[in-house]
Design a protein around this nucleic acid. Structure first.
Length: 278
DNA sequence: CGGGGCTCCTGTGCGC
DNA sequence: TGCGCACAGGAGCCCC
């Protein structure tokens, strides 16, 4: 589900409502939420859940951060919870239908529920969250001024992987997922199957603003909500009303009216225009 | 390095 | 209507 714009929307909601709040109770319905970002198939880090829960009681939230698609809830003592919503995770101030995997209760009476239909989402406790491998291995943020055509030229040099795959690679630029990769490539007129090293600097000069525009516009629209994504109040975003290729296979291209085509790249569905994207 | 395939899960939608 | 399969905003790992 959530890519950078959706996570950013949630982060801003959390920051506005929960900064300074003290955790008075923390209920974990599904202990697997604490896999600690360990390999899915491999041995899971042993975590003493009750010890972890006890340690969180009375912690006061100082700040929220977003890095890529990760959220960090940082406490005044410097420790933090790192959260990732994966495909279907939701953070809600009110628990609606169905059970939450975890629930936070705060001193003021405020609550926060972590719901997650597919249960891929994860939480990890850390005393030094920026140094955790999941965070430290992330590439640059696309919206803080570091993303330039020259940076992409350098990063894509020698890479024979498709430009779509490289945009999804969180260790180069973080926060872009399948929706915004497809949208940005369409706006830049670049075919998603092109090898990274084949993209010319003039094309990267189109791609950089395309990435920034689709992400910024989506933040303005509070995210893409076709199936499960909602904000902390359970409200849908509006980005799905403005996408031009994602989810639009077999529909006419907004520029040339040719029908958009859907292909698979590294197992991910990608829609593009065979006429407009070279 | 890259892509395919599989894993973690559950729900939806489509073709037959 | 019902069944089975493909697929879904993520991402790590193994294998070739």
């Amino acid at each position: 589900m959530p890519e950078l714009p959706e996570v950013e929307t949630i982060k801003r909601d959390l920051e506005k409502n929960l900064t300074g709040q003290v955790i008075t109770q923390f209920i974990v319905e599904d202990p697997r939420i604490f896999t600690g970002f360990s390999p899915s198939g491999g041995p899971r880090r042993k975590i003493n859940i009750s010890h972890l829960i006890r340690g969180l009681i009375n912690k006061k939230i100082s700040q929220f951060f977003r890095r890529g698609k990760y959220l960090a809830m940082e406490f005044v003592d410097g420790s933090a919870l790192i959260l990732h919503l994966r495909m279907t995770g939701q953070l809600l101030f009110k628990n609606g239908e169905g059970k939450a995997r975890a629930a936070f209760y705060f001193g003021s009476g405020k609550k926060l529920f972590f719901k997650d239909r597919r249960r891929f989402g994860e939480i990890q406790f850390s005393t030094d969250w920026k140094k955790e491998k999941s965070i430290a291995s992330l590439g640059i943020e696309p919206l803080n001024g570091n993303l330039t055509a020259q940076f992409l030229k350098e990063s894509f040099k020698e890479r024979s992987a498709s430009v779509h795959s490289l945009l999804l690679n969180q260790t180069i630029v973080c926060g872009i997922g399948n929706i915004y990769a497809a949208e940005a490539l369409f706006r830049a007129g670049i075919r998603p199957t092109r090898k990274g090293k084949s993209i010319r600097i003039e094309e990267l000069n189109q791609l950089v603003p395309a990435i920034q525009q689709v992400l910024n516009a989506s933040i303005q629209n509070r995210g893409y909500s076709m199936s499960t994504y909602v904000d902390t109040l359970g409200k849908k975003g509006k980005t799905q009303l403005f996408t031009q290729v994602y989810g639009k296979e077999d529909q006419p291209c907004v520029h040339c009216k040719n029908l958009l085509k859907k292909i698979k790249i590294s197992g991910r569905g990608v829609v593009y225009c065979t006429q407009c994207q070279k």
